[in-house]
């Protein structure tokens, strides 16, 4: 059974304007997105800023309200749940954030931060059991148990990200949404956190939705990868397939734009003209057509391409993908 199944999810934000704050338009941050995550799997999610990847991650853990669509977690639709019912389910899905400085309360010790999660879900019978759990969690993420007495400002960025991971693990979730967990870290520390996430996945059978803009990192950690552009999924496939044989022209350009360390690589760079258009007023037809090197009139300007299975397990939303 799927751990998570997202069906036709939409998140639209109203744009208000004028004297009585009338709704003038909608930002279609996530527009009709469907996908699944299996238990223990990592699904990578890439895209440029403003493509809706963070909003999608937040909608899944219900930090923003979906406008339409359903989110089945272990077969149960959580899209409409709220209050105590939602809180009970939240134990199964947690989130880690990009900014390890902004996501920890500076006035709580590390022990209190992790303990709070244990308390909310009443996962420890006694205070000694609670203390033991905090120590175990700190060890699991590579910190020392004595760190429980310290405050977040006493730690480096990488260590703070470890605290964030320990807090997410405290409630024994099955899915963790990781929103750019390494992009704020120094290059030499990134690899530590990526390795830690992979180790924890193996030990605990966790599933990740791994959101990042760095394609190499996403390819490394994910089994499957999903590419978003202007609120829509444009390609979804096995990580290796999507990097080696991308089907969508946007994915092709995105991969070619990654600067390469290997000076002898012969990859040709496709430089896309222009910027990502505004999601308030996205282009007609295929949202990528104004920047697409292979767009053809009139089909690309008129027909919205649907996400179709081009080859087994490889989905792309392009009229010309084959």
């Amino acid at each position: 059974m799927n751990l998570l199944e997202v069906k036709n999810l939409k998140v639209h934000f109203p744009v208000k304007h004028g004297l009585f704050s009338r709704v003038k338009a909608h930002v279609k941050a996530v527009d009709d997105v469907s996908f699944t995550i299996q238990p223990g799997e990592t699904l990578g999610l890439v895209g440029e800023s403003g493509c809706g990847k963070t909003t999608l991650g937040r909608a899944i853990v219900k930090l923003v309200e979906p406008t339409a669509g359903s989110i089945y977690f272990e077969g149960e639709d959580i899209a409409q749940l709220s209050g105590a019912e939602l809180r009970a389910r939240r134990r199964k899905f947690q989130m880690i954030f990009q900014d390890p400085y902004g996501s920890l309360n500076p006035r709580m010790t590390v022990g209190q931060i992790i303990g709070e999660a244990i308390d909310i879900h009443q996962l420890a019978e006694s205070s000694s059991a609670r203390q033991k759990r905090i120590m175990e969690l700190l060890k699991a993420v590579g910190l020392d148990p004595i760190h429980a007495q310290r405050y977040p400002h006493e730690f480096s960025g990488g260590q703070r990200q470890r605290i964030g991971i320990a807090r997410a693990l405290a409630v024994e979730p099955k899915l963790i949404v990781c929103d750019e967990p390494v992009s704020a870290l120094d290059v030499s520390v990134q690899a530590q956190i990526i390795n830690l996430l992979q180790d924890l996945q193996q030990q605990r059978g966790l599933a990740y939705l791994f959101i990042a803009h760095d394609l190499a990192v996403v390819e490394h950690i994910s089994r499957r990868v999903m590419v978003m552009y202007l609120g829509k999924v444009v390609e979804l496939a096995e990580a290796k397939a999507i990097i080696r044989t991308p089907k969508h022209p946007y994915t092709q350009a995105l991969i070619s734009a990654v600067p390469e360390v290997d000076p002898d690589s012969k990859r040709k760079r496709i430089v896309l003209p222009g910027d990502v258009p505004s999601p308030i007023n996205p282009p007609s037809g295929c949202p990528f057509h104004p920047r697409c090197p292979i767009a053809q009139a009139p089909i690309c300007q008129v027909d919205v391409p649907s996400l179709r299975e081009v080859t087994p397990g490889h989905w792309a939303a392009c009229h010309f993908a084959k």
Binding site: S156, V189, A191, L215, E219, H220, V261, D262
Partner: peptide
């Protein structure tokens, strides 16, 4: 320590410490 595109590396070699 930086992952490269289309490499088959299972594990990154992290630099210890900060």
């Amino acid at each position: 320590s930086v992952p490269k595109l289309s490499s088959n590396l299972q594990r990154l070699s992290a630099i210890p410490g900060n």
